[in-house]
Design a protein around this nucleic acid. Structure first.
Lengths: 238, 238
DNA sequence: CGTCGTTGTCAACGGTGTTGATCGCGGCTA
DNA sequence: TAGCCGCGATCAACACCGTTGACAACGACG
């Protein structure tokens, strides 16, 4: 985790007048590219090959020597973010606290890198971080008292929901940057109480759920249901 | 639904030699544009201004006279799809059947229009369809026995999850079109049983969860938990 | 010492959303 | 009825994006 000698980016003697070469030998590797991408995303800027190029002091297309696609790049970056989340967990805490904390960390981490976070619900990294996260979730669900079948089902629900939340929140962050908007539900003055009674009845509660809280309450719902299922199956089990 | 006189596209006498005009008067309106967009999406083709133009027999940029953005277009299309889902529901069925059916309908409808569905988890239409859907979900949750607070919380969880599922499934449909891929979890031969025991233990169950079933089981989880919460609060209530 | 693979460079392509000026038709007003 | 005027379609162009292929420099290797 200690930052390796990474600052030697433009320190080459540069024989000619033109700045064309800058290519001694190594220059780029997956690590530095991913780091630059995360930095860009953290600054709220879009992660683009050209932007990556200027950030790294190289030609944009040089990235293609280390990543086949933009998709492979984004996947790697996302996997790194998931890994960060996983590292910040307290693996000795009670299962419910861990799952809660992990969800909050994921959502906030992705929302802090919006241009990456938007893609969250739609990719699936297949990398080290994701595998570790799956294993962790399954472990906690097992500790909660779920059997294998139940754990797998709840895993799908949990991760799907968290990633969706992260994507939606990132999206919102991006929109807020380019102009203030009304809360997450479109224009709720248009709600006709006669035609949509159930909606109108809970309108104040809905407006209270802003931003991040919308999703966090969803997580609580999920954790509640884990407890409910676990205890009920424990009843029938003993 | 009957096709209106829409075939008069290039049949104008055309005073000059050039085919430039073709513009009598009406030509386009929001309705026909949305219909064309849905048709494109249903064919698995990307919804693009240029493609929309050729499909409608007009200049691509003509669409801008009826929609401010591409985003506004996509939102409108999505809202129309949600409306279709809502219309196909049996509003007299038991709440659990309705919520289940609605989830299945949503997921399948979006997956049948992949290039629109991918955006599902990330937009939020704010239109008529979405409002009707919210009202419907809240109504069913109320019938299930949840109070207002609980209903709002479960609504967030339910809709977020369904949309995420739709987006993920659409994504998968698109990928499958351009080349067969391994199942939803990346490369699971790389799983190290010693480092990731919980994952390795349920690996067969995970592989069984393919495609759409991954998400449908998640829906069941949510519905189970609705029942659990509702009955437990009914206990403490009486 | 010559060859070869790796890696950065450069120019270019095709596709995207989006904008501005232009123009023709139809409805409105004088 | 004659003339204005605005709305909607058009066309050309812009900026940006991911991606490709040919090329050049450098280290490694036989």
């Amino acid at each position: 985790m200690q930052p390796p000698a990474q600052s030697d980016l433009e320190v080459y003697p540069m024989s000619g007048a033109k700045a064309r070469r800058a290519s001694g030998r190594p220059q780029l590797d997956r690590e530095s590219i991913v780091a630059a991408a995360i930095e860009l995303a953290a600054a709220g800027e879009p992660v683009t090959f050209r932007g990556l190029g200027t950030a790294l002091g190289t030609d944009p297309t040089a990235v293609y020597r280390h990543f086949r696609d933009k998709e492979e790049l984004v996947q790697t970056v996302m996997d790194r973010l998931i890994l960060r989340m996983h590292e910040q967990l307290d693996h000795d805490a009670p299962w419910r606290e861990q799952l809660w904390h992990g969800a909050v960390l994921s959502i906030d981490l992705f929302a802090a890198h919006p241009h990456i976070g938007v893609e969250a619900s739609v990719v699936g990294t297949g990398g080290e971080g994701e595998l570790a996260a799956i294993n962790w979730i399954l472990t906690q669900l097992g500790r909660a008292g779920l059997d294998k079948q139940q754990a797998v089902r709840f895993y799908a629900a949990y991760s799907g929901y968290v990633l969706a939340a992260a994507a939606a929140l990132s999206r919102q962050r991006l929109r807020d940057d380019e102009g203030p908007v009304s809360p997450w539900i479109g224009d709720l003055r248009a709600v006709d109480a006669a035609r949509l009674p159930a909606l109108a009845a809970v309108l104040p509660e809905l407006v209270d759920l802003v931003d991040r809280d919308v999703f966090l309450t969803g997580i609580e719902v999920f954790l509640d249901s884990v407890e409910a299922i676990a205890s009920s199956s424990a009843d029938s089990g003993s």
